[in-house]
Design a protein around this nucleic acid. Structure first.
Length: 732
DNA sequence: GTAGGGTTAG
């Protein structure tokens, strides 16, 4: 059964046809022309007797190599069958090529079967199996094979073995195994080889030991582009984009060949750091070295510009891209969505479909948040149906985005149904659902879900805690919130971040425990940021505490906020206490710093249209009807006890104050919603700021006198108004 | 016949 590869069998007399086929096959294989090679192969096999004039082993192996490169399992199997009829499958060369083919076609089990039938296995065969397991995610098996090749066959691993098994160590996050391989490589002198040392430093990076990797890198006698790239990438992936970029610049400076991979890593780092100028320099460089024809590089360039908040520059690159891949579209859509350009994201998504580019889960995960932001229930339902038609609705990423979207469209019930029907749930899926409940004020349900999550063995992360803490805050669950905050570090070893501290201040502050909130801030192990003092300031407004408000505001102003909201908050707190001089002082300071208060707007969502209202806006087509309806509405709610809350307005007479209040954007939006919808229809409003006290109060009464349910999404959370009450329990 | 770095995600 054993067949030797050499000497080459000579063609039988008159077998010119067979050798012609053979020559054709060799030529096709050399051109990487698999169909051509296969055609010649089949012709040759049928025209010549299998025994004598059959193709020589080398043609088999080169054909198998081609199949492996193209993951063409069907052709690979044909070749396997031909080898079998000739009794060649036990040959070391053929079997190794076969095992390799199966491994590259994602059939490690078949690779193993071929391997097991080999009567004698040499080091190359072992190596092929190790590499096969490693590349198919079977890290444990790959490492085990390295042990067995030594124990079973007495084969010493060589450099190929090491380079093959190292990615498996990374996969398994096996730092210990990596150290072992490293030690072995040093003992055998393999670390002199650039590819071995590069693979070692790469695995150290992937196991989080970047500094060890750097030591290996520094000691390498010879480095090439791949070594530099692995090290740069290592820094970038371990959150050290600064060092990644520095190393990239050194690479350029030392004249090392910059490749597409180096550029990809550099762009990634620039994006992470938001370094637009550096990013543009990399852009120039990549054009100079002709990498602007490389789509992957251009896609990374789009992402870099988006991360630097320059969707305009990204769009320019995108538009000028001659060959766009699906990833180009995905990167651009995501960039728009993450820069608040939800409409553009949705428009691009439509264009993508017009141009017949098939979306994938990445596309949906990018466009669904944009639709969540737009909050149009009709479009929400449409994208859900679309995800189902594309068979992507059970993809965890997509599903999680859908849950989040439904919650943001005010449909927590649908979100929960999706959550329940999920075949697979990641931590983030739980987070989205918990956050959904919290934002709607269902703090108790959020807490129950959190408990269920823990009891089913899921490990919460920082975001889970943020969601559950914020849920507690919005529902006034102070004790639970305190408990979870300490559990974070004690039970899960998670270090609270600025946002967690801010949420606890919010929790305590809303509940009126201002002193406790203040001393909590004083004891923080990290320097409190604007968000923390901002939460404190909000609580001071709610509970009318001027003294602590001033303290908090002063800290905020020292930190240099970019928005005028904090000045406005402080001015309102002074106004409430009738401290008019202070009001004027804060206003002047705000103007001096050139800070502005963003104008408030509300949108009302009708069946398939969205209408935006600004405070006092009169440019709507039906403005007259709207103001008339609103006036009537105010009379109706006054009859059930509405008293305008003019606290937040000053400098003008009382009747003007009431007038100003009555033209708040949310009231206009509600009035329009009432005009345009049938009795009993739920009205859905979205507001860009926090809803004001007076509008909150008025909306409660409007829900009472009209018998309508009103769902209002403000910047903080959702309010469900029904029968004169709000789901937030007046606690927001 | 086996082999190092690699674009988009909640």
């Amino acid at each position: 059964m054993l067949c030797s590869a050499s000497p080459l069998p000579s063609p039988p007399a008159g077998g010119t046809a067979a050798s012609d086929h053979h020559a054709r096959l060799r030529a096709a294989a050399a051109r990487s022309d698999l169909p051509g090679a296969l055609a010649a192969f089949v012709a040759m096999s049928s025209s010549a007797p299998a025994s004598a004039a059959g193709p020589v082993l080398r043609t088999f192996t080169s054909l198998l190599k081609l199949c492996a490169a193209r993951s063409d399992l069907a052709t690979g199997r044909t070749v396997h069958a031909q080898l079998a009829t000739r009794g060649l499958v036990a040959d070391a060369l053929a079997a190794t090529a076969l095992a390799n083919m199966y491994a590259k076609c994602r059939r490690p089990g078949d690779a193993r079967r071929v391997f097991d039938r080999m009567p004698v296995r040499d080091r190359v065969a072992w190596n092929a199996l190790v590499a096969g397991y490693a590349r198919n995610g079977l890290a444990g098996a790959a490492m085990e094979m390295v042990v067995r090749m030594q124990e079973q066959d007495g084969e010493r691993p060589d450099s190929v073995t090491l380079v093959s098994v190292l990615p498996a160590c990374a996969d398994a996050q096996a730092l210990g195994a990596c150290r072992e391989v490293h030690a072995f490589a040093v003992r055998g002198g393999f670390d002199e080889l650039v590819n071995v040392s590069t693979a070692i430093l790469d695995v150290y990076c992937k196991c989080g030991a970047v500094e060890v990797a750097r030591a290996v890198f520094n000691q390498m006698p010879v480095k090439n582009s791949v070594s530099w790239n692995a090290m740069i990438k290592g820094y970038a992936e371990n959150g050290n984009s600064t060092e990644a970029l520095a190393l990239f610049k050194r690479m350029v400076g030392e004249g090392v060949d910059v490749t597409d991979v180096s550029i990809l890593a550099a762009l990634h780092a620039c994006g992470e750091l938001g370094f637009l100028d550096e990013g543009m320099r990399v852009h120039e460089l990549l054009v100079r070295i002709g990498l602007d024809s490389n789509v992957s590089v251009m896609n990374a360039l789009i992402t870099m510009y988006c991360k630097c908040k320059r969707t305009d520059l990204a769009a320019q690159v995108f538009d000028e891209l001659r060959y766009k891949t699906r990833i180009s579209w995905n990167a651009m859509i995501l960039g728009c969505a993450q820069n608040g350009r939800s409409d553009d994201a949705v428009r691009l998504f439509s264009r993508m479909q017009l141009e017949n580019v098939k979306p994938d889960s990445f596309t949906l995960v990018s466009v669904i948040p944009a639709l969540a932001d737009i909050s149009d229930p009709l479009q929400a339902r449409w994208i859900h149906g679309y995800s189902i038609r594309m068979h992507l609705d059970q993809d965890v990423y997509v599903l999680t985005a859908l849950i989040d979207m439904y919650a943001k469209c005010g449909r927590v019930g649908i979100a929960r149904n999706l959550f329940n029907s999920a075949r697979e749930r990641h931590v983030i899926t739980w987070n989205a659902m918990i956050h959904g409940y919290g934002s709607h004020g269902f703090g108790k349900v959020a807490v129950e879900l959190f408990e269920e999550m823990k009891s089913t063995g899921r490990v919460p992360n920082e975001t889970t805690f943020l969601s559950v803490l914020s849920a507690c805050s919005h529902a006034g669950l102070v004790d639970e919130g305190r408990k979870y905050f300490s559990s974070m570090k004690e039970d899960y070893g998670l270090e609270p971040g600025m946002e967690h501290y801010g949420t606890i201040v919010d929790l305590l502050g809303r509940a009126g425990k201002l002193d406790e909130a203040w001393s909590f801030i004083q004891k923080m192990p990290i320097d409190p940021g604007i968000s923390v003092y901002g939460a404190m300031l909000g609580a001071c407004k709610l509970h009318k505490n001027v003294e602590l408000a001033e303290e908090s505001a002063n800290r905020i102003f020292e930190l240099g906020p970019e928005e005028g909201v904090y000045h406005v908050l402080l001015a309102n707190i002074y106004a409430n206490a009738s401290m008019w001089k202070d009001v004027a002082r804060v206003r002047t300071a705000m103007e001096k710093k050139g800070l502005q208060k963003s104008p408030g707007w509300s949108i009302v969502q009708l069946k398939n249209e969205i209408h935006t209202f600004y405070s006092g806006s009169t440019n709507h087509q039906q403005a007259k009807d709207i103001y008339a309806r609103l006036a009537k509405l105010i009379d109706e709610i006054k009859a059930v006890g509405y008293v305008p809350d003019t606290d937040s307005i000053h400098d003008v007479e009382d009747d003007v104050k009431a007038q100003l209040l009555n033209t708040h954007s949310e009231k206009l939006a509600i009035a329009y919603g009432l005009i345009r919808t049938a009795p009993g229809t739920t009205i859905q409003i979205k507001k860009n700021l926090r809803v004001c006290n007076d509008c909150h109060n008025a909306t409660k009464l409007i829900s009472l006198v009209t018998g309508r349910k009103i769902i209002m999404r403000d910047i903080q959370r959702f309010h469900h108004f029904k029968d004169g009450k709000c789901s937030c329990g007046d606690y927001w």
